[in-house]
Each structure stands twice: as C-alpha cells, then as structure tokens.
C-alpha cells in the first residue's frame, strides 16, 4: 500500500444534494507528497468535492453518493468506515479562520485530546511541533494560554493549520484558506504549504489562479460539477487541452 504512489483515488464518483446532482462522474488520482489545486468558477463543485474527501458532507441531510473514494487504499465510504476515524486521518483548514474560543494551547491540543492523549508532556510536545510546523511558534510561545481570538486573522489561520497538523493527517485539505486574509498573511500561508508537501499530501481549493500556479504541482479544473481537465500545473496553465479550461484561465468567465 505504501508503495502505491496515490494517497487518494476517486472512482466514478457521483454526488447528489437531494435531486440535484452536484458532481458528475469524477475520476481522479492524487499523488502522495504533492500539492493538488482544485480550481473552477463558483458553484462548480470543487468545494463539495473537497468536503467529500473527509466526509464533511455527512453533516448535511439528504445527500447521496455513488462511486468510491479510496484513502491510501481504504474505501472511506464503506459501511464499516467511521466518519470520525476518516476525519482524524484527513486534516482540514477552512475558508475563514475558525479557532475555538479557547487558549492557543487548547486549540492545538483539541484533536490529540479527543483521541485519548492525556499526559501533559506528550501534549506539550505535539503543540510545540505543530506550531513550529505552522511557523507560529516563535510568535506565540510565551502566550500559549492566551485566547486564540486575540490573534490576528493570519495568525488565526496558521493556528488552524497547526491544529490540523497536530493530528499528523495523511492528507491535508484546504478550502480557500487565504480568501479571508491580507496579501502578507497569504504569502506566509503559501510558503508554509510549499514546505508541507515534504511530509504531507495537500489538496487546496482556490479561487485565485495565480495562487494555484505558484504553489501546486497538479491542477484540476472543475466546471458545472464535472472534472474537465487535470494534469501538471505547468501544462494546465500553458497548454490546456480543453476549450473550457482555456476560457477559464484566460479570464473569459468565472
């Protein structure tokens, strides 16, 4: 399994909100230790697709899924799969920073504590290494017991990243993580994401095509619930194979 280069494999995936089909026949392999960017106009299904990868859409009533999603070879929608277990293995960073109204320490320790890690020493270690990985440690190491809400927006988002990294996830999902941030915070997050690919598989939804071009190895273009085109980022942005992709990246719609 470890030899299989794909962290995520999506096979003939169809997804419905009630009667409305949101995703149509998606097939996609996502390679380990790469950054994959999902792009496309609003409502194209890219965020829906992202949220299927950690079963966040389970929280919505009246949804239906056909097809398979394999996480390191395991079918995450198999009857015996537990959504809590899947989400433990797949980290997520959201569009808006959403730290818990708790201390910085407790935000990062939240996940490990959920899963039964109680000893102070172990928690301290996890919190420090996660905050370092999110490049936040130097800024907050003296204020670990201050409220997370006292941080700036960019810091909050890096805290949310640290919170996700504390679980040592197999895959890290990011849903437009910089859309609510200023340019400086955005570039910090982008640098971080590029560092992270050494140890993590990152899938990032973005509205910002420059961002996708800057940081990703692979790019997938979604349109009207379909995966139109996927491939190496260089190729997608320079030599798109499909007319729709070309129209989108050259700014003719979106």
């Amino acid at each position: 399994m470890v030899n299989d280069p794909n962290a995520v494999e999506v096979k003939t995936l169809n997804f419905f909100y009630g009667e409305k089909q949101a995703l149509k026949n998606i097939n996609l392999d996502i390679k380990r230790n790469e950054i994959t960017a999902l792009i496309g106009p609003s409502g194209c299904g890219k965020s829906t697709f992202l949220r299927l990868l950690n079963r966040m859409n389970d929280l919505i009533a009246g949804v239906r899924l056909e097809g398979k999603i394999l996480l390191n070879g395991m079918d995450i929608y198999a009857p015996e799969a537990e959504s809590a277990d899947i989400r433990r293995r797949v980290g997520m960073v959201f569009q808006k920073p959403n730290p818990f109204p708790k201390s910085i320490f407790n935000n990062v320790a939240y996940g490990p504590m959920l899963h039964g890690i109680k000893n102070k020493h172990g928690l301290n270690r996890i919190v420090e290494s996660s905050l370092r990985a999110a490049a936040l440690w130097e800024e907050v190491k003296d204020d670990l017991h201050k409220s997370a809400l006292s941080l700036s927006g960019g810091q909050q988002q890096r805290l949310c990243l640290a919170r996700a990294l504390a679980m040592e996830p197999e895959v890290l999902l990011m849903d437009e993580p910089t859309s609510a941030l200023d340019p400086i915070s955005t570039s910090k997050i982008e640098e971080l994401v590029m560092d992270l690919k050494n140890s993590y598989t990152v899938i990032i939804v973005t509205h910002n095509m420059q961002q996708a071009a800057r940081i990703s190895d692979k790019t997938c273009f979604f349109y009207m619930g379909e995966l139109i085109e996927s491939g190496a980022t260089d190729q997608i942005f320079t030599l798109p194979q499909q007319r729709q992709t070309e129209n989108y990246i050259t700014g003719r719609f979106g």
Partner: peptide, 18 residues
C-alpha cells in the same frame, strides 16, 4: 454557536458527543 466551529471540531475527528 457558529457552525464553522462545529465543523472544525468534526474535521479533527470528533464524534458528535465530543
């Protein structure tokens, strides 16, 4: 309680009770 906080918790693998 804002929904995105609950989502953050679920995304870390918390059960509904947690």
């Amino acid at each position: 309680v804002p929904r995105d906080l609950l989502e953050a918790s679920y995304a870390l693998g918390a059960t509904p009770l947690q």
